[in-house]
Design a protein around this nucleic acid. Structure first.
Lengths: 226, 226
DNA sequence: AGTTTTTCTCAGTTGTTTCTCAGCTTGCTC
DNA sequence: GAGCAAGCTGAGAAACAACTGAGAAAAACT
């Protein structure tokens, strides 16, 4: 899967690039509208991530021009908070989805995946390990059929662990996926949140084996047995 | 309940819009096939009312394209008298019902209601949770058999909550379903309306457990126990 | 036209969540 | 089993999300 990121803030562009590369996407970056447009026209991408505010040629214009040139590649538009009203304009210009900045990388990834998935259906919203389940649609989390209340960050962290169950995730990976690109949190914060999750999903179920495991020196993983 | 009306005769489109709004639907209108298609694809409607004869992209085509794009929203097709033979084609293209012009508004309303009536937790036109009931046909709302008066927006919000009972709905989802496309209301408005509903359906029944629940960080849901 | 109701925003308050820090515990290595 | 790095955790400051009373503007009655 090839992705083009058109974004003038290098920090953001590169963090998206890195993150997607971790997920096995091939990513090109462009830092202004003009070169982004050229690349999109001449290369063959599966998704284009397009910032709204761009030097030389803004996102809406790039989008319109591409559509006018018969480029039908799905476009994910990035808009800053204040520009939210432009979402309509963006979608009218031919974008397929939009995302408001700042966003967590996991959110971006989910949308990119949705755009690359041909038939856009929303089944399979429930993630599980053992007797723990998390529904990304209704936000319900249960263990042994008992509902568990999580805060937003706890939920996002658990979702990320579950999507990669059995796999060890480093604190850096976790930070990059669960927090905003401009969040800049310490690795210790992850430790703290892992602690919160254990208090809610492992500690109250002492009769069962714990699901969250520390892999010393590497990170954390979720799954049965160590 | 959100409805999209696609009809090029502004007079008819607006009279449908007004009429449905009186019935507590949130209605968007489009006056040609292309913009109708765009809206239907990007927004989330509960019913689409689609004229057969349209500039830019005719009703049959819009219908086919929507189905091809995995949009399964019920479609009510409007046909003029002479086009009666096209009804077959319309139904083949994926429409769920059709109505011959000119029609009485009551007829249209009945069909829209028929299309929005889901077999789920509703017996006929009445939605219920515990001792609370809401009749989408007569607009009667009762708790413990005592009638409750709601404004149009309050009614629409409660209806949406009831149709998704037990499920947590985000403020964004609520805004998208209860308000129409160009409404652009703040999330706080939802909080305020939730407050109004609580004043009417939970606060006067202190002896019973509340039905409306806040799911902090995610949204609201209706149902028994937390 | 005047009155009432409804819709929606704003600002103040409250309680929760997010995140950091600092001290503590654990487990690995020699 | 001492020393050390990695991870854990309780406490607290700052940021945030939700609730609510008040009121302006619009819509609906009368």
């Amino acid at each position: 899967m090839r992705v083009l990121v058109v974004e003038d803030e290098h920090k953001i562009a590169n963090s998206i690039k890195k993150g997607l590369e971790q997920e096995a996407y091939a990513v090109d970056a462009a830092y202004d509208g003009e070169s982004g447009f050229d690349l999109a026209l001449n290369e063959d991408y599966d998704v284009i991530i397009l910032d709204l505010m761009l030097p030389k040629l803004d996102g809406i214009e790039v989008c319109k021009q591409l559509r006018a040139n018969q480029v039908h590649t799905p476009i994910l538009m990035l808009t800053a908070k204040g520009q939210l009203n432009d979402k309509v304009e963006g979608l009218n210009a031919g974008a397929d989805d939009y995302l408001v900045k700042p966003f967590a990388f996991a959110e971006l990834l989910a949308r990119v995946k949705a755009l690359t998935r041909r038939p856009r259906n929303s089944i399979g919203s429930v993630l599980t390990v053992e007797d723990l389940s998390l529904d990304t649609l209704t936000f319900e989390v249960k263990r042994a059929n008992k509902p568990i209340e999580l805060s937003k960050k706890e939920f996002a962290l658990l979702e990320y662990l579950l999507r990669n169950q059995g796999r060890t995730l480093t604190k850096d990976q976790i930070i990059n996926h669960v927090w905003d690109y401009d969040a800049d949190v310490l690795p210790n914060t992850v430790e703290v949140y892992i602690g919160y999750l254990r208090n809610k999903i492992d500690r109250p179920f002492k009769d069962k084996p714990p699901l969250i495991h520390t892999v010393r020196g590497f990170g954390y993983k979720i799954g049965r047995r160590k």
